[in-house]
Computed example of a mutant assay.
Amino acid sequence: MKPMIKWTALALAVCLPLSAQAHRAWMLPSATVLSGEDPWITVDAAVSNDLFYFEHFPLRLKGIGNLDNAPAGGPPGMRRPVPELQLIAPDGSQLKAENGNLGRYRSTFDLHLPQKGTYKLAVANDGLFASWKENGETRRWMGSPDSFAKDVPAEADNLKVSQNSSRMEVFVTSGNPTETVLKTTGKGLELAPVTHPNDLFAGETADFAFLLDGKPAAGVEISVIPGGNRYRDQLGEIKATTDAQGKVGITWPEAGMYWLEAELKTDKGVSKPATERRASYSATLEVLPQ
């Protein structure tokens, strides 16, 4: 695979709605529910075809060891700054990753959990994505609205511009679950849990709500896939759609790690030069046995 195509595939996987891509971006914690007086977790972060299997690219994250000063990657026109990893403690304070490393197929880091309660690990992206025809070839660009005018030809042939936002989250609880980190930001597509994301059990139904810019997001398509699909003939996907209040119920068929993805495409709330908006959300969730 040529470098240009490689970087384009990775940039698309991380920055666009994820179910539309061949590759999925994810973070996988070593545990989501812990006890004890001095707990730690190790987190893997990758982009892959098969869930929770390392075979494609590491997920590049600013703030984990040798990526602290990493430059933007990719070919001209597709370069995006390395997204920052946010690690939020139960009291709302920011933590730092430890022992971070960028490998060939995955990034890894450790996180010390000094407080009792629920932590949130998050990565968020937003910006514009454009495509057009030039000399018979498809050209692609992604970046900020400020750089759009100087980077994209004003009279580009068959120009299509979308306003994109994505958010990836993991929740981890030490001791009893708490609610502080579940508060949403009011930006993009977000999960507003009704059932706590660290209180999921096989055979039970979890109730979730999704918000777009802080308001109920109706008609959001939800996809839930159990990990380990590399070793199954069937994907095992659970599909659902949010109701008028942005709510949806997911019944977990068995214990294990799951990848949840939600996406919405709309022409409402779009700012020029974009003509459509795409928002996506993903989370890695652990379902425990009864």
Rank of each mutant, 00 (worst) to 15 (best):
D91W: 01
F171R: 00
D68M: 09
E84L: 15
E84W: 05
V47R: 04
T173Q: 07
T173A: 08
E98V: 06
R140H: 13
R167E: 02
R140Y: 10
V123E: 05
S144I: 09
R80K: 12
S93Q: 12
F171W: 10
F52K: 01
N49S: 11
V123N: 10
K133Y: 11
A89L: 07
V43S: 00
G127S: 11
M78P: 02
A72S: 07
R167T: 01
E137T: 12
K120P: 03
E134W: 14
I64S: 14
Q86N: 02
R79M: 14
L95A: 11
G127Y: 03
R60V: 09
V123T: 06
R104Q: 12
R139E: 01
Y53A: 04
R80V: 14
L159G: 01
F52V: 09
P153W: 02
T108K: 04
S107C: 10
D157H: 04
K116W: 06
K96F: 02
Q163H: 06
E134K: 10
L159V: 07
S165L: 07
A45N: 08
P83D: 14
D157W: 09
D44R: 08
E98D: 10
I64G: 15
P58A: 07
P58H: 11
L59W: 13
N66R: 14
M78W: 00
E169L: 15
G100A: 15
N135M: 08
E84P: 15
V170C: 05
D68C: 13
F109A: 12
V170D: 01
P90C: 09
A72N: 11
E155Y: 03
M168S: 02
A89W: 01
P75L: 13
V172Y: 04
Q94C: 04
D110H: 01
G103W: 03
K150N: 14
E155R: 05
W132T: 01
G77I: 05
S144K: 04
W132A: 00
N164D: 15
D68V: 12
V152H: 01
P76W: 07
G100I: 09
F54C: 15
T118P: 04
L159Q: 07
H112K: 09
E98S: 14
L51A: 01
G103L: 08
S107N: 13
S93D: 11
R104P: 08
R139W: 06
D68A: 14
N66T: 13
D50R: 12
F57R: 12
P76M: 06
D126W: 15
D146F: 09
N49E: 09
Q115P: 04
S162C: 07
N135K: 11
L113Y: 01
Q163C: 13
E169H: 02
F109M: 06
V172L: 12
M168L: 12
G65I: 15
N135V: 08
V43A: 10
A156M: 05
K62I: 03
L61H: 04
K116I: 14
G73R: 03
E155M: 08
Q94V: 10
Y53G: 05
D157Y: 05
A97M: 04
P114N: 08
R139L: 06
S93A: 11
N49D: 08
F171P: 03
R106D: 11
V123P: 09
R106C: 12
W141P: 00
A124C: 07
F148N: 00
Q115R: 05
G100L: 10
